[in-house]
Write a protein that binds this DNA or RNA. Structure first.
Length: 154
DNA sequence: GCCAACGTTGGC
DNA sequence: GCCAACGTTGGC
């Protein structure tokens, strides 16, 4: 079971700066079963690579940490929410979220292009054209990405 | 803005 | 349970 993850967010919607300012946030709005199932495997203390998608350029911008394990995403039950799902209910919440807290911004931005060219990251899901918004990352991959963001040379 | 990849829905 | 149509993601 992975203790390391990558979570995507569009910075227009929620960025690393938002997380730094707020300190902690609910990761609501995941509406994909595979991503949901992965979130349900998360444990408090798990480490997260914070990834900006649909950004120019896209890439890893920081690190976060899981501070609350999966619980019902109640936004799915709120008709005025953009994340509303009419099939969700209190009895069967259908969707779940976790809470994450800010750990740090990486000193250096690690672009998707860099990830794709880095030794040891060939099998990383995000480099494989995957649309999955919550992804497991191996321990080695996690530390390689952090090293790239900390400015270590190959 | 385009479009490839891929997930979901619904008719049969 | 198959699969075509459709919708979404997200890089480019």
């Amino acid at each position: 079971m992975s203790r390391y993850w990558l979570m995507k967010t569009e910075p227009n919607t929620y960025s690393i700066d938002d997380l730094e300012r707020e300190g902690r946030t609910q990761w609501e709005g995941v509406r994909n079963y595979q991503a949901r199932n992965l979130m349900r495997e998360m444990q408090v203390g798990d480490r997260v690579l914070f990834y900006h998608s649909s950004a120019k350029p896209p890439g890893v911008v920081g690190e976060a940490r899981v501070v609350r394990e999966a619980y019902p995403d109640h936004f799915a039950q709120q008709p005025d929410s953009p994340y509303f799902d009419e099939k969700a209910s209190a009895e069967d919440p259908r969707w779940y979220m976790v809470d994450v807290e800010f750990v740090r911004k990486l000193p250096g931005f690690v672009s998707l292009e860099t990830l794709k060219g880095a030794r040891g990251l060939e099998d990383m899901i995000v480099t494989q054209r995957s649309r999955l918004s919550v992804q497991p990352v191996t321990r080695d991959e996690f530390y390689i990405v952090c090293a790239l963001g900390d400015g270590a040379s190959a």
